[in-house]
């Protein structure tokens, strides 16, 4: 399949859900154009709710709509979805055991020219501390569509990182997905790369090719859900390959790296190397420049993996 704008998939999927289920509503904080959800509002004017530049209220209103039986999908840039509305999402939505789907767009370096102010490297870490919350980051248009549908069908809060830009499909259109389940994209015997998101999963696949040239067989897992982590799959591949590399467009501390390391430390101590952001703020630049700058490339992943064989 050709590259497809992820935000268009997000909107089309929600429109499809809304046609079947009148309780689906969306909320935006003056970023409908950025999130690509304007067509939803055109199709369902009463159910496309723009709250203006007021993210805290957006999440609070979403919580109230959920208490009224609606299934609200609220979206804003990931920096605001996490840092600016954390208390509202924590208490009015999660602690209240309501059913709010919060979408944080432009994860990590995909914020590009919006720079450090808008570059969430900490949202997963914050959200991982919320009990019972499901955290997902689809890697392609197919996983996005299926995981949005799974989120709508699941009663409970979900935080989703949404890469807005065009992305190539990694999966056939009829692939099925479940919240909490990762996918083995490539099997291997010597090391397992566990990757997250539309930037890092393709890089992990390229890294596996680089490792193959060096004579190492690398498995690649698209983890898709950070919480609840697919423990069974991670432990299985830790046992099988004995070495793990995590790759994420986020801080390793508190992120996927932290989650995998916590699991393995307790359940099956295994050498782990992490690719991700190391306790620094974001910066402006093209996504390609940022990827080099923050060492989020296939070569960086392969290099970390090689380190595990030293």
């Amino acid at each position: 399949m050709a590259d497809k704008e992820m935000r268009a998939v997000y909107c089309e999927t929600l429109q499809g859900l809304a046609e079947k289920n009148r309780d689906i509503v969306i909320l935006e904080a003056d970023l409908m154009r950025a999130s690509g959800t304007m067509p939803f509002k055109t199709a369902f004017p009463e159910r496309g709710i723009d709250v203006g530049v007021a993210e805290a209220n957006m999440v609070g209103v979403a919580a109230g709509l959920s208490a009224a039986g609606k299934i609200p999908f609220a979206a804003t840039f990931g920096c605001f979805a996490s840092r600016r509305t954390f208390d509202q999402f924590f208490l009015s939505a999660n602690y209240a055991r309501l059913n709010v789907k919060l979408t944080g767009t432009d994860p990590g370096i995909s914020a590009a020219f919006n720079g450090g102010t808008h570059m969430p490297f900490e949202d997963i870490g914050m959200m991982r501390l919320v009990p019972g919350l499901t955290i997902i980051e689809p890697s392609d248009p197919v996983s996005l569509e299926k995981l949005v549908e799974a989120s709508a069908a699941h009663y409970g809060c979900v935080y989703m990182r949404l890469h807005r830009k065009p992305v190539a499909s990694l999966y056939p259109a009829d692939e099925s997905f479940e919240l909490g389940k990762g996918k083995v994209l490539k099997d291997g015997n010597d090391v397992t790369i566990i990757a997250l998101g539309a930037i890092m999963v393709p890089e992990a696949l390229k890294a596996a090719e680089l490792l193959k040239e060096k004579g190492f067989s690398a498995a690649v897992i698209d983890i898709l859900t950070v919480k609840p982590l697919d423990r069974e799959l991670v432990l299985k591949y830790a046992a099988k390959t004995g070495r793990i590399v995590t790759a994420e467009n986020h801080q390793t501390a508190g992120g996927l790296g932290g989650a995998v390391a916590e699991l393995l430390a307790e359940e099956r101590p295994t050498p782990v190397a992490m690719v991700g952001i190391r306790d620094v703020f974001g910066e402006v630049g093209t996504q390609d420049w940022l990827q080099q700058h923050f060492k989020l490339t296939a070569a960086d992943i392969a290099g970390k993996a090689m380190g595990l064989f030293a």
Binding site: I49, A56, N57, V59, G60, V61, A62, A63, G64, L65, S66, A67, A68, G69, K70, P72, Q88, S92
Partner: peptide, 11 residues
């Protein structure tokens, strides 16, 4: 009050 707004809008 935000939650009340959501409840009122839902109704």
């Amino acid at each position: 009050l935000s939650a009340a707004c959501g409840l009122a809008l839902g109704r």
